[in-house]
Nucleic acid binder design. Structure first.
Lengths: 331, 331
DNA sequence: CTGAAAGCGCTTACAG
DNA sequence: CTGAAAGCGCTTACAG
């Protein structure tokens, strides 16, 4: 079986408390004793049981990352950033996919309430949820990622309104007169903010807002949804000369649809995405998009969580990232 | 603070062992007592501490998924399959990215050796590693996913040789005379097997094998590597009329390169991928590829792991999946 | 059917 | 500097 602290103590001929002291790196152990203990540890390949350590009021060194779906193309980068940071801090990261389903979300939150993990990062669908708020109020360390929750909590987001404003302004500056907008789920503030950035930009350029060329897409079925939305848009209005999409996949779907209608990108219609996913460089033409620092955002969320675990009373922090225009060939 | 079993016992006016019995669902508790305990549990919102449960020789209900990199496009689907299955079984899944670096891999294995998790699924780079073998020999429950480890262990793989044989045969059957092969890392048996399937197919069709039109790609930089490899291939031999790639991304890079050389796909050169990633349907032209049941494979790996944890002595199982040809427009 | 006790592998005051 | 003891929150034989 696996060696325990008792085995080490026996082999080193000391009390288990002494072994524990050596392990915790406290200074109050004589050099020769310490050496004996270390030798025993090495000899037995002893590793302290984290369960027992955790039970004595300590940390479990485990955190959870709660996201809608790792197959949603923005999350691999996000979770990799979080995991790398976690690993650096000695933390393990539990992956939780909710599909934005209340039932799954609830199940995970119950798990978290058992205090098995030290804290959690949430990129859930709803901007608000009773369970979540309850969990937060119970003092559980948590960080909101890419979401604005309705209470005071550590948060990592992109400056969506501003970014969408710039994106639209770029299209307009390049000569577009009728820029269509693919809108995400309006329940999520992130999409509302991008929409209002788009509107503000139109206004500043003196272009009237036209609801006819705004079309909602299902952000869970990005590509196909972008294709369908564009098809609808074209059936309503053949004079579109620009499309701004709230994510890259829908933008790529839009390009495919335009191609199928023999409409040239970017000559006839310019297409601008949001995210800069890996695919963005692989399409024809390569996608011009707003580069969102996904990896960095995941990393930052984990850093905030770590601080929060260390100091539950600290002031909540809010880290805002800018998305930057990355010009390729589609606009 | 969070309620403990003691609080429940006090409120229900019973001993903690009785509470424990109710929790474990054993029959030997009288109905009225049981009701009182249940009521107390409900009232306090009590959740048993999994750390304490785990400490008493039980399970931690946590497993690890060790992969090279979640950003590698095949792994989101795989991990989603594993996580869904884990959730169904009441398990939590820890995500571990190794980048195929010995140091990171070692760090994770040390973590696993602490028995903090009940078992692990490995999709590591190396087909063999002393650490891994040691871990397996110590009786730690584990499953190999998409890898053939060199010892008797539960395994989930794709029938790579056969699949590559069929893929190549399809190209040949469609009239190709010179099918180039993009080769993956030969250290990994999966790529070696695909290569030998390719060779066997050529042989059966009476076409001589030509090393000139085999080019290695870096499977960590798929798209660009596929592009570069195709460029090299074209510089050596302009008579290629087919390309079989060991993964979709490299195939898409190949298509991009062909396009930049004004070579038409599929008219001049047919391109066949492997994997059927989400991107495969998003390219121009949509990619013909070998559909690999990634989600199902992750799911199956978790199922095997669960059985293994339940019965460490059982015979090792090997589940082999077939990749099926999915014809789209590139070949 | 129920309780008292031992023990899982640790950590941490408390003595000495 | 070191040891003996209590305790973290559970489970599980062992009595009764």
């Amino acid at each position: 079986m696996v060696a325990t602290i008792k085995d080490v103590a026996k082999l080193a001929e000391v009390n288990i408390s002494t072994v524990s002291r050596v392990l915790s790196g406290r200074k109050n152990v004589s050099a020769p004793t310490k050496e004996r203990v270390l030798e025993a540890i090495r000899h037995l390949g002893y590793q302290p049981n984290p369960l027992a350590q955790g039970l004595k009021g300590g940390r479990t060194m485990t955190a959870a990352l709660v996201i809608p779906n790792i197959r949603n193309t923005i999350f691999p980068a996000v979770s990799r950033g979080a995991e790398d940071c976690a690993a650096k801090l000695g933390y393990n990261l539990i992956l939780c996919n909710t599909d934005e389903e209340a039932q799954r979300e609830k199940a995970y939150i119950e798990m978290l309430q058992k205090r098995f993990v030290d804290g959690a990062i949430f990129a859930t669908a709803t901007d608000d949820s009773d369970y979540l708020r309850e969990l937060a109020e119970s003092g559980f360390p948590m960080v909101a990622l890419m979401r604005d929750l309705h209470w005071n909590i550590d948060t990592v987001v992109t400056e969506n309104e501003e970014s969408a404003y710039h994106a639209t302004a770029y299209l307009l500056g390049r000569g577009c007169k009728r820029v269509a907008f693919l809108n995400g789920n309006e329940k999520i503030s992130l999409y509302r903010n991008r929409f209002s950035g788009y509107c503000r930009s139109l206004k500043d350029f003196g272009i009237p807002f036209d609801p006819e060329i705004v079309q909602e897409v299902d952000t869970r079925r990005d590509y196909h949804s972008g294709y369908q939305a564009t098809k609808l848009l074209l059936s309503r209005d053949r004079h579109i000369d620009g499309i701004f999409s709230p994510n890259d996949n829908a933008a790529i779907g839009a390009i495919a649809c335009l191609r199928d209608h023999d409409i040239r990108v970017p000559e006839d219609v310019k297409v601008l995405g949001f995210g800069n996913l890996e695919v963005a460089q692989m399409t024809t033409p390569p996608l011009t998009t707003m580069n969102q620092p996904l990896y960095k955002m995941g990393e930052t969320a984990m850093e905030l969580l770590f601080s929060r675990i260390g100091d539950p009373q600290a002031e909540a922090r809010r880290v805002v990232f800018q998305a930057e225009l990355l010009v390729r060939a589609s606009a």
